[in-house]
């Protein structure tokens, strides 16, 4: 079992993607199937950007076993008041500044769902959000 953990800084777009990029490097070293790495990277990056765009701080935890990769992104932040709405393509609460950078198109959570096998959101308004994602390693389409 390989375990990784990274801190994510809220609001710092210059560093957004750094944690995902480090995980990608490790997955390549572990010789995980390229097609799976591509999907995992999309989901991780979107989740990382969500923390940067919406939360104060957070962490990315990765547990890699021969069967699957579990990814847990936990943040201290505003939480999500309506998860069902947040999951809809096109819905976003991102600020104008974030949208001008080309984020906040409401495609992040749908991208995560498309690229993972399991996805679960636990959130508390005013406290924070935990996103759990799983990718099975024997499930290459």
């Amino acid at each position: 079992m390989v375990k990784l953990k990274y801190d994510i800084e809220g609001g710092n777009f210059n560093r957004a993607g750094n944690a995902s990029s480090q995980v990608k490097r490790v997955l390549k070293q572990l010789n995980i199937d390229q097609r799976l790495i591509k999907k995992i990277v999309v989901a991780l990056y979107e989740a990382e950007v969500n923390i940067v765009a919406h939360a104060y701080e957070g962490t990315m935890e990765i547990n890699i076993s021969p069967e699957k990769i579990d990814m847990i992104l936990q943040d201290k932040g505003p939480g999500i008041s309506n998860v069902e709405q947040a999951m809809q393509e096109g819905f976003s609460t991102a600020s104008q500044k974030v949208r001008e950078m080309g984020f906040g198109a409401g495609m992040g959570l749908p991208n995560i769902k498309k690229n993972t096998d399991l996805m679960e959101i636990e959130t508390s308004v005013g406290v924070g959000t935990t996103l759990r994602m799983t990718k099975y390693l024997n499930n290459v389409e």
Binding site: F13, N14, A16, G17, S20, K24, M101, G102
Partner: peptide
Amino acid sequence: QNHMNVIAIASL
């Protein structure tokens, strides 16, 4: 788009 995140995405 002309900022750091464009590079991050292109690299990923």
